[in-house]
């Protein structure tokens, strides 16, 4: 074709190259943020870089990590799941009750996973097949799960779990020593588990056809549908994944606390889950985000809270910083898509 029409294509390609490169890699922000934070804290906060504390942070990733992974799946597909944190309690109390009654581990664990998936499936059916608004649906499920847990237990914590269960999930393995640390420190199983699940589900999301369908559905549901992607199945599946993650969280937390309660994770933590996911590059409009980014987003938040606890600085300042970073990240996302 003519030279005339060739010249009219990229009239606004004047963005600096570095910015362009950075924009194309949204997972980089939380990675950089985490690394910078880690270095600053290691230099300024006593005991922060101590192996015991590093393992402590690693283990803490297992508390919210699964829920963040689930949230990433749902948000990439363009949805949101507000219910996962109460589903944790619902799954935990039932599974724990069975464990206490049978003095076995496996059926209870299976039940926790199952209940998580059932709640996820309920969300999925309502959002994907009945076309209800995710925010409202999962808000309702959140209340249902919480009510169910309280009703089921009469608000009493479930106690007396089999040692095998507690020892398995809250165990510390592969003792290590670092530098001058006197005693070897074990690696928390919760951290190892979340790392493995993050690697597996991160792989599925970023490399496989299933993951691509999730991204495309979130990027533009209508286009995805016309392109032959079964968007309802895709959306349904993401909610089930989120539910399964709540089930795994139930196992980890129940073992760690030695009890299942009706309010293991509170609503304030929901903010952390969404914050980690958004800092990790996900967008509430869907189509964006990655497990890698989310995990570093969570690492950032965990380190922040840990460092403040070590310093004995008011935890409420940490809240201010978290909120500020979140707004800044969302602002950056807006700039990036402009």
């Amino acid at each position: 074709m003519s030279d005339a029409s060739r010249s009219l294509v990229t009239r606004d390609s004047s963005v600096p190259r570095l910015w362009h490169w950075f924009s194309a890699r949204p997972a980089l922000l939380p990675v950089v943020l985490s690394v910078v934070m880690a270095v600053i804290f290691a230099l300024t906060v006593p005991n922060f870089a101590d192996l015991r504390n590093i393992m402590n942070i690693f283990g803490q990733l297992g508390f919210l990590g699964f829920l963040c992974i689930g949230m990433t799946y749902v948000m990439v597909a363009g949805g949101i799941d507000l219910s996962s944190y109460t589903v944790v309690s619902a799954a935990a109390v039932v599974g724990a009750t069975v464990m206490v009654a049978t003095e076995t581990t496996l059926p209870g664990c299976f039940l926790m996973l199952l209940i998580g998936c059932v709640f996820g499936a309920i969300n999925g059916v309502a959002v994907a097949y009945l076309r209800m608004i995710p925010f409202i649906v999962t808000l309702s499920t959140m209340v249902v799960a919480e009510g169910f847990a309280i009703w089921f237990t009469q608000a009493q914590s479930v106690y007396g779990l089999p040692d095998a269960f507690i020892d398995t999930f809250s165990a510390r393995v592969f003792p290590m020593t670092l530098g001058i640390t006197a005693r070897p420190v074990g690696t928390p199983v919760a951290g190892i588990m979340v790392l493995m699940v993050a690697l597996a589900l991160g792989f599925v999301l970023s490399r496989t056809i299933y993951g691509r369908r999730i991204y495309l559905t979130g990027a533009n549901e209508e286009t995805a549908r016309v392109s032959g992607i079964k968007v309802r199945q895709v959306k349904f599946a993401t909610y089930v994944v989120a539910g399964a993650m709540a089930g795994i969280t139930a196992m980890i937390l129940t073992a760690d606390l030695g009890t299942a309660t009706t309010a293991m994770v509170r609503d304030v933590r929901l903010m952390d889950i969404i914050a980690a996911t958004v800092i990790g590059g996900a967008s509430l409009r869907g189509g964006k985000g990655s497990i890698l980014g989310t995990m570093f987003g969570l690492l950032f938040l965990t380190m922040l809270s840990n460092a403040f606890n070590l310093l004995g600085v008011s935890p409420f300042i940490a809240m201010v910083i978290k909120g500020t970073v979140l707004v800044a990240v969302i602002g950056l996302d807006v700039l990036r898509t402009k």
Binding site: F63, V268, L310
Partner: peptide, 26 residues
């Protein structure tokens, strides 16, 4: 006596994390 304060926002899991942090701090 030095008091090192942490707050868990009524979150059971967060309280466990906070306790871990304090233990890590020694």
């Amino acid at each position: 006596i030095e008091l090192v304060f942490t707050a868990a926002d009524m979150d059971v899991a967060k309280q466990a994390s906070d306790a871990n942090d304090l233990i890590s701090r020694g």
